[in-house]
Amino acid sequence: MSDYNHHADHVGTEVAPAQTKRIWQVFLILSAVTTLEFVIAFTIKTGYFKTSLFVGLTIVKAFYIVGEFMHLKHEVKGLIWAILLPTLFVCWLLLAMMLEGGSIFNLR
């Protein structure tokens, strides 16, 4: 994001053409994935396979939102890791606590 236009005397004149092709591309991908999730919700039987499909597709959507819309894909590596690493630990906590919940169910 270093390519900012810092010239204040540029006001209102000769606006550069819009570069929105990639944005609409990502929008199409997100819509397609969401539609696919709907199809899966009503066609595939409930079970581990369905759940892992949903989790996988959610990660795909998260990748496009964070990577393209939030522009993280184009930041420096240090920033990417500063955001990604804590999130990975959160995923571990989620898994651990779900297993814990299963064990509470078994003990009841």
Partner: peptide, 26 residues
């Protein structure tokens, strides 16, 4: 970005709780 990562923790706490409670029910 750092605010958002801390907000992620708050939301994750809620979702983790959901996972725990849901899996402890039949």
């Amino acid at each position: 970005w750092f605010f958002l990562i801390s907000d992620t923790f708050t939301f994750s706490a809620l979702l983790v709780t959901y996972g725990l409670i849901r899996f402890s029910f039949p």
